[in-house]
Structures are given as structure tokens and as C-alpha cells.
């Protein structure tokens, strides 16, 4: 499927060449922290935040779960280095690339478009750049990563990607601005 895009007062586009891994482990363990540092040379993200290492992103999903997002070109190498670094530890590392879809919102009013669909506080004071939050988009579960002031990444399950794309396209359409 080609990258699809919607042009409105905020632009919505789907990013296809992304791989995602789920890591379930005791994130408080020093061994796990050291292994991740070794494999990705990045410290663990704080709760409700993301850590970035080059083109890869580590998102804090829950006290025992991380989502690792990487460009597909680097994914195989990253997976094997993680697998090696974590071997022998009590963890679950799973490639979930085909289970999830990723979208990007860009534009000055991204926070407003998000606020239309997710029951969360999108004010910069509550959700600064670098924040990550799992929530819902209208009817379906999803996650939000505030990458820049004018750019938000969205993650949802692939089975609902058409719904999420249509949802955000409608919310971002010209003429649907809340504040003129």
C-alpha cells in the first residue's frame, strides 16, 4: 500500500516503512537498563515520555512495556542486537510491525485536531514535546507521541488504520477549524 496523505488545515499521512518491536520486561531492573543501553545506546524513557536514538524511538507504554519504533531498513539489525543484549534475561521481545500502523499529523494546529478525538489534555503545559500517551481516538485505542510543536505521531492497530485515517482526515479538513 502506498503512503496515503490528506491535506487539510493539518496534514495527515501514513508512514509505511516503520518497524515496531514490543519489549515486555521489568523496566526497573538494572540488567534490563544496561542491556538496552548496550543495544541502542539510549537511556530508558521516563513514564509518559519517549526517548530517541537516531532514527529509533523508545516509547514508555506501561511500567513493564516499551515500544521500539525503527525505520524498516535498520530494523533487522536492531532486532538482532536487542535479542543478543537481552539473551538470558526474563523478557519478551516481539516484532509487532505488521500489527500496528503509524500516522503523522503536521501543521500549526495539531494539538487542536488531536483534542477533537482523544480525551486528553493536549495543552503544551500538560503534554510538552517529547511526551507519549496511550489513549483512544474516538472508538479505538491508540498512542500519541508529541514529536515537535507542529508534528504528532499516532500509532494504532493496523486493523483499524482505515478508520483512524478517515477520522483524522475529517477532523483536519478545511472548514473544521475550532479557532479561526
Amino acid at each position: 500500500m502506498p503512503n496515503r496523505e490528506f491535506q487539510g488545515y493539518v496534514n495527515v499521512s501514513q508512514i509505511m516503512d516503520q518497524s515496531m518491536f514490543t519489549l515486555r520486561a521489568n523496566l526497573a531492573s538494572t540488567k534490563i537498563k544496561a542491556a538496552l543501553k548496550l543495544a541502542m545506546s539510549v537511556a530508558l524513557p521516563k513514564p509518559g515520555a519517549c526517548a530517541t536514538a537516531g532514527a529509533c524511538t523508545l516509547a514508555w507504554m506501561s511500567p513493564d512495556e516499551l515500544l521500539i519504533i525503527a525505520p524498516s531498513a535498520e530494523a533487522q539489525k536492531l532486532y538482532s542486537s536487542l535479542d543478543t543484549a537481552l539473551s538470558g534475561l526474563h523478557v519478551l521481545l516481539e516484532d509487532v510491525s505488521d500489527a500496528r500502523a503509524k500516522f503523522i499529523l503536521t501543521g500549526a494546529h495539531v494539538r487542536e485536531v488531536l483534542a477533537k478525538l482523544a480525551p486528553m489534555d493536549t495543552h503544551p503545559a500538560q503534554f510538552p514535546v517529547g511526551s507519549f500517551n496511550r489513549t483512544r481516538f474516538a472508538q479505538v485505542a491508540g498512542a500519541v507521541f508529541m514529536e515537535k510543536d507542529d508534528m504528532i505521531s499516532l500509532i494504532c492497530f493496523r486493523s483499524v488504520q482505515d478508520y483512524v485515517f478517515a477520522l483524522f482526515s475529517a477532523a483536519a479538513a478545511h472548514g473544521s477549524e475550532v479557532f479561526q
Binding site: 513514564p47 509518559g48 506501561s62 480525551p119 486528553m120 489534555d121 496511550r134
Partner: peptide
């Protein structure tokens, strides 16, 4: 208390 986020009733 786990993720520290204020959650709306519809998310719970």
C-alpha cells in the same frame, strides 16, 4: 498511579 496520567472515565 502506574502511568501517572489523568484518565477520563471513557478510557477506564
Amino acid at each position: 498511579p502506574y502511568c501517572g496520567r489523568d484518565k477520563d472515565e471513557t478510557e477506564l
